[in-house]
Design a protein around this nucleic acid. Structure first.
Lengths: 118, 118
DNA sequence: TTGACACATTCCCGTATCGGTATATATGGT
DNA sequence: ACCATATATACCGATACGGGAATGTGTCAA
């Protein structure tokens, strides 16, 4: 077994910065591939491949118009991500940051401990 | 070049279901590794490796206590994800779903077009 | 039909994954 | 010192990613 496919779910699809960039662009309205290629600055095949992933996960829809293929955002598949992360939202509030700092302090006083971080 | 490292950022770290599961467990309070191993049901080395990734990204903190290592959630690094996804939140509301349906309808009427989905 | 344009697919390569198994590194107990 | 417990690391194999380059497919125009 290896790492899960990027097409496994939105979490994996969106882990790639270029793909987020594409979604960000599409958030401003539907666009043909060439448009995306220009704005992102990577080669066309790469863009097409990223779009394929986004399509398979259901984050974008395509429509053929003449020789162009117009891509449109479908944000619904982002909801699971939002829902999951949302459960943690209160934990990075000011209050929790404070609690964090306090706990660190206490530990540092208890034992003359060094950092454990990488 | 290959896929970005899982330790590149929280997006990549959290793309792995097992790692989300670990964070979910830690959301209920700090826990030693063995505890996580039992609850998740995968081998200890795998858990340790996932914890390493989470540590390197800054999503968890460790504290040594006797021969145990107590892991604690640090949710702050999830904020970028929440912020990014949050920008799309309004787009999966009822209204947009409707708009979506309407657009599909219109297109289907204009041209006797088949589906474009995989 | 031929050619240009828009886009998708295929192949290659180097890399990093995840799981499995084995081993190393603490730390505590006797 | 020795053994058990708790955890981390190293090594392996299979997978598939992501960029690059080349090629295939579809559509319009003359």
């Amino acid at each position: 077994m290896a790492r899960a496919a990027t097409t496994a779910d939105a979490f994996n699809a969106v882990a790639e910065p270029r793909r987020r960039q594409i979604l960000d662009l599409l958030a401003g309205g539907e666009r043909p591939v060439t448009d995306l290629v220009e704005r992102i600055g990577i080669a066309q095949p790469q863009v097409s491949k990223h779009l394929r992933v986004l399509r398979e996960v259901g984050l974008v829809r395509v429509r053929g118009e003449g020789r162009q293929r117009i891509y449109r955002l479908d944000a619904r598949r982002l909801k699971p991500i939002h829902d999951w992360v949302g459960r943690y939202e209160e934990m990075w509030s000011e209050r929790y940051d404070r609690l964090d700092a306090v706990l660190e302090e206490l530990k540092r006083e208890e034992r003359g401990d060094g950092g454990d971080d990488e």
